[in-house]
């Protein structure tokens, strides 16, 4: 039984230059205890998806449709009061930038305690004690002493830990981490990722990790969703995506990243640039950069957007090319042959 169901989520932002369709028909489910990785480059819509799930988008400036269902309740149509009661308790979010997500004027302990007080009718002292416990839980040394420190007295890694403490203090069933380690060094990133994995085990939460780093996904995710220009282009288990990728964009991402455990004479980039969301190509949005396009007969790629179709159970791909042809093109590409 999935905990969160997202059905045909669409988010558009009207601008002076036209409508920006940031998220275009995203659907997925996630169970408790599982981790979903959402991968994509800047502008692919991965962060907007997470903000829409948390109902953090300002509805004055965003046109949102579709369904975000948590325990039978559709949050897209729910009123602000209901959404507030879900936020924190049912779902919580860890933001990308720990430097700017904490209020500089309040002590770290107070900020964590505030998140607890919103949902629990407790005294200030009790909430602060709970905050100290949470800071201890996420590995802040001497939490009783450090709780009264201000954010500037914390290092980047400790601030991210404080953010995690804040997100976890109401035992949320769904934790969304939006680029949780992008601003951090690798050694600190390793600490934070192992912390997220630990708390997931302890609280049996559903976790969504949004990142552009394929290594992070490989480490934490059970299932992976690859996004490009607002759409899901491939979706499957972590092994499907890394060992049997089919969508040329996924293949391109895997082959263009230099690897720590690999020697190559030359990187194989994806040519061109991601399209502007204001002027999306008529057909497949990846077509102008696609290296497999020549294998498709006719001009389907330039005229129609392919559907996200199942290629094998649990593995969906959005591409006009036949599955067998996709696999052989992918193999060649990953072996550095085209």
């Amino acid at each position: 039984m999935s905990y969160l169901e997202v059905k045909d989520l669409r988010v558009a932002f009207p601008t002076d230059d036209g409508l920006v369709q940031a998220v275009d028909g995203v659907s997925f489910n996630i169970e408790r205890g599982k981790t979903l990785g959402i991968v994509g480059e800047s502008g692919s819509g991965k962060s907007v998806t997470s903000l829409a799930i948390m109902s953090l988008l300002n509805r004055k400036h965003a046109i949102i449709s579709g369904e975000v269902i948590i325990e039978g309740k559709n949050l897209i149509t729910a009123d602000e009061e209901t959404v507030r009661s879900y936020r924190g308790h049912e779902m919580a979010m860890i933001f990308q930038d720990p430097m700017s997500s904490l209020h500089p004027f309040f002590s770290v302990g107070d900020q964590v305690a505030e998140a607890y007080k919103v949902h629990n009718d407790v005294s200030d002292e009790k909430a602060f004690d709970h905050a100290i416990q949470m800071l201890d839980r996420v590995g802040i040394p001497e939490p009783a002493k450090r709780a009264s420190d201000f954010p500037h007295q914390f290092s980047g890694g400790m601030r991210q830990r404080a953010m995690i403490a804040m997100a976890l203090c109401n035992d949320p069933s769904l934790l969304i981490a939006d680029e949780p380690t992008t601003a951090l060094d690798v050694t600190v990133q390793a600490q934070i990722l192992s912390l997220i994995k630990d708390v997931q085990k302890e609280f049996n939460s559903a976790v969504i990790v949004i990142t552009h780093d394929l290594g992070v996904v490989a480490e934490v995710a059970d299932d992976v969703m690859v996004m490009y220009a607002g759409r899901v282009v491939e979706r499957g288990t972590v092994n499907d995506i890394f060992y049997r990728p089919e969508m040329p964009y996924t293949v391109g991402l895997l082959s263009s990243a230099p690897r720590l455990d690999q020697v190559s004479d030359r990187l194989i980039p994806i040519e061109g640039q991601p399209p502007s969301l204001l002027r999306l190509p008529a057909g497949c949005s990846f077509a102008p950069r696609c290296f497999a396009k020549s294998h498709v007969n006719g001009d389907a790629c330039d005229t129609t957007m392919p559907e996200l179709l199942q290629t094998r159970p649990g593995h969906d791909v959005r591409c006009h090319l036949e599955s067998s042809a996709r696999i052989s093109v992918a193999k060649q590409r990953l072996a550095g042959e085209n």
């Binding site: 990722l193 480490e219 455990d261």
Partner: peptide
């Protein structure tokens, strides 16, 4: 050892 590899296994 801290750098995650894009290779789940």
């Amino acid at each position: 050892s801290a750098v995650p590899l894009p290779d789940p296994i």
